[in-house]
Design a protein around this nucleic acid. Structure first.
Lengths: 206, 206
DNA sequence: ACGGTTCTGTACTGAGTCGTCAAGAACTCG
DNA sequence: CGAGTTCTTGACGACTCAGTACAGAACCGT
């Protein structure tokens, strides 16, 4: 029938995500993406549309992957829910600093750069924030069921607070605040959760 | 001697701050600043240097003003230190949403956009974060002296945590998370501070 | 009033960017 | 092998932007 494509759509999308995460929206040209993927500009336009469309597709792909990752970290049995929360909170700084390329949350980045003027992007960003809050809420509720968090605590507020803290650690890590200070802050935040006496008295784990 | 300037340097700097805060570094052209100030580009270059220099000067001016504002909110007598901390924490969302132009923290914005590649900006941003942490620490220490916060709490970690939360609320507000949710999260965070029994039992204020 | 100095506005250059287009390449079906 | 279809490439035009240059305007001391 016709000439087949020589590129993998997912590969191009991943490259676009990397470029936008690294350079921002205004700071990334289609030539950058073209160079990163080896694809000519014509092919890019034919397959993905204009710059904004490429951006929205890349952001959508990031959101999809981010939610998969978030669930992988937070979903699980009730008895270890509080530990998963602890890990999530404490890994806040690492989300930026451990990454080879010092990325960080793309949703946070574009919430700051373009949400004000790009309603389509803003909707995607709000979506991922909301769903991450929901995943956190599920984990908080699990910890409450297991008796590690106070049953009368406001789970929604806790989830929102934890996510905000995570986003803030991201920003501060990018601003150069020392890893040790952020880790200590994260531990402090965890101790500020409404932990039950049962949690504090539980036997230490391996 | 010579022709005097028709513009006020501070006015131009303020306009530059506004433009960069609104549009980001890559998204703001010198024409934008020129238009916003009514000043020709030639005068801009003669007085402020190239784009990056203008940006650094604008960021420096923002940092100066931000520290003045932070001190105005947090400095004060020991007996109301805990209230000032409460106000600061709870005003996190308002920092974006109450502002007429929905700005938010310029340091946070550029930590995300340019800190990775612009060491000069990164140093300024780290400076404002560090000093804000110090101001918060002073306020925390004051609250400890007055017996509202546990004396054995790690003030540095608390200060860093509170600042991270503030930055994160900023990001989430820009991402469209509802004001009510952020306010509830802020209240939750405040309750997570190591408040003393003396604070909880104190008589309600006007 | 006048000369010297500084400021202002605008036009220009060179580079980069977006989006399009047309010509050629690769593949499949008949 | 040929026709038709789809993909790829590179170039092109219009535009924007950063930074410079130059001519003229405004001012002050003498």
């Amino acid at each position: 029938m016709a000439r087949p494509r020589t590129f993998d759509e997912q590969t191009v999308l991943d490259a676009a995500v990397r470029q936008f995460r690294a350079g921002g929206y205004a700071g990334t040209s289609l030539d950058d993406i073209s160079a990163a993927t080896g694809l000519g500009r014509g092919s890019l336009y034919a397959s993905f549309g204009d710059k904004h469309t490429v951006f929205i597709k890349a952001l959508t792909e990031y959101v999809r992957q981010a939610l998969v990752d978030t669930r992988a970290m937070l979903d699980g049995p009730d008895d270890s829910a509080i530990d998963r929360l602890h890990t999530w909170i404490v890994s806040g700084a690492g989300f930026v600093l451990d990454d080879d390329e010092h990325f960080g949350c793309m949703a946070g980045k574009f919430a700051v750069e373009v949400a004000e003027t790009d309603q389509e992007a803003k909707a995607l960003i709000l979506g991922v924030f909301s769903q991450q809050q929901q995943i956190l809420l599920d984990c908080v509720t699990a910890a409450q069921r297991h008796g590690d968090l106070a049953a009368d605590a406001n789970g929604c507020a806790l989830a929102c607070m934890i996510l905000a803290l995570n986003r803030g650690m991201d920003v501060m890590a990018k601003g150069g605040v020392a890893r040790a200070a952020l880790d200590a802050a994260a531990e402090q935040a965890f101790r500020g959760l409404p932990l039950t006496a049962a949690y504090r008295d539980r036997p230490a784990r391996a």
